[in-house]
């Protein structure tokens, strides 16, 4: 069972209507960002004051290259994906390998609400109210063997529905991986929904990973295979460009990326403030581990500029 105490309470995610009301309150307060409202608070405190992005933001701005490289492409094309029936293959160094039916799997897990910051390697971020279960719960259920050191994930490969898989823009199927202790961390979530709705296709339906202290591309979508392995598994972006995308890809303002400054980020979305849909919204310093310092002990003996 879940041993992670969520610092966000139920009232943070009751309904979209309440979010709307809150946003209206913000508008009344002068349209400033949350940070501006509470002078003297630390950055981390202010970040926790960030309101979740709207459902519309979350479903209309996605990186899901199986459906196109534009941010609005997945919203346009992901409807082609069939998510029912959906099977998840569990294999490798586990006690209970097999092909699990998604619905049966979800029914056997305890679904929680988790509001996480989501930081893209491209330098933008959102706050997303996920629904899902802890990956550790699933790993306990399937029984991890002692030799297992890593968890490998794979996205569905179905080019007739995911049209970009007919191109060679990335090596398909999309792959990702976590070290076992990262996968077992209580923050690591298998998401099945946002805003209490089933996960929309463009967000990685029906089952995706969410690792909030890592750049977004680690949070692999539409998972069909989970394998427990001994060696560090391949990840798609690492194959594409190993100099730019490391296996760990922890959010880290001190490790430079050749294309984007990771020192700071822009909060995006309709309720960010700053006018004209966020055009003048303030840029913010990026926090180590995206502000989830509870994971720092996972990396305490590692040189993060080498294992980036």
């Amino acid at each position: 069972m879940s041993n992670y105490i969520n610092k966000y309470s139920e009232k943070d995610i009751t309904s979209e209507k309440i979010f709307l009301n809150r946003r209206q309150l913000f508008a009344l307060a002068g349209g400033f960002g949350a940070a501006a409202l509470i002078p003297g608070k630390s950055l981390a405190d202010n970040l926790d004051m960030r309101k979740p992005n709207t459902f519309e933001d979350i479903i209309n701005y996605n990186n899901f290259y199986e459906f196109g490289v534009g941010k609005s492409d997945p919203a346009k094309y992901a409807h082609a994906l069939t998510t029912d029936p959906w099977k998840v293959t569990v294999d490798g160094l586990v006690d209970n390998p097999g092909i699990y039916d998604f619905q049966e799997l979800v029914d056997s897990m305890s679904i929680e609400k988790r509001i996480y910051r989501f930081r893209c390697v491209e330098g933008w971020s959102m706050v997303i109210p996920w629904n899902g279960f802890q990956l550790s719960d699933l790993l306990d259920k399937i029984g991890v063997k002692d030799q297992a050191k890593y968890v490998a994930f794979e996205t569905l490969f179905r080019p007739e529905e995911m049209y970009m898989q007919k191109t060679k823009i990335l090596k398909w199927p999309y792959k990702e991986g976590l070290r076992l202790d990262e996968a077992m961390h209580p923050l690591t979530l298998m998401a099945t929904g946002v805003y209490d709705k089933p996960l929309p296709n463009q967000n990685g339906a029906p089952l995706r990973l969410v690792v909030p202290w890592k750049y977004g591309f680690k949070s692999i979508k539409s998972i069909v295979r989970i394998s427990l392995v001994e060696e560090e598994p391949l990840s798609s972006w690492n194959i594409q460009n190993p100099k730019e995308y490391g296996f760990y890809s922890n959010v880290n303002p001190n490790v430079h990326h050749p294309r984007w400054s990771q020192a700071s980020e822009r909060y995006i979305g309709k309720n960010i403030g700053g006018g004209l849909g966020g055009l003048f919204a303030e840029r913010h310093d990026t926090m180590m581990y995206n502000g989830y310092n509870e994971v720092s002990n996972l990396y305490k003996d590692m040189d993060l500029s080498v294992f980036f």
Binding site: E56, Y61, W124, K270, L276, G277, G278, A281
Partner: peptide
């Protein structure tokens, strides 16, 4: 831009 039609991240689109 003024009609909020540049998407979720109007700055990047602009």
């Amino acid at each position: 831009l003024f009609n909020f039609k540049l998407g979720v991240d109007p700055l990047k689109t602009l």
